[in-house]
Amino acid sequence: MAENVKPRVKVPSSASAGETVQIKTLISHQMESGQRRDADGNVIPRSIINRFVATFNGETVIDVVIEPAVSTNPYFEFEAKVPESGEFVFTWYDDDGSVYEDTASIEVS
């Protein structure tokens, strides 16, 4: 079970219709690759976030498969065009079956 996992997102609170906004997301996670060994020589089991999805009003904005080479605390920064007011939903999928979710609303005028 991964510890100290905490999702964070940064989305502007308002935008004009059709504007392209910048979105930053980060989840604190150790991203253990499965390649390392502990002090006793045993392999430390792989434990990573393997998928990240962002949707806006139910429509997929970005859907990412994450591999073990991605380092600690995966950070994604991307842009999205917002046609109307609504809600971004961000979802991270953990190897251990945990699903972490965060949301952010944006007001479009």
């Binding site: 100290n4 905490k6 964070r8 940064k10 930053k24 980060l26 604190s28 605390n73």
Partner: peptide, 12 residues
């Protein structure tokens, strides 16, 4: 602060 990796430790 969103980009500053040190802030993760501040949060802890």
């Amino acid at each position: 602060d969103f980009d500053n990796p040190g802030i993760l430790y501040v949060d802890q």
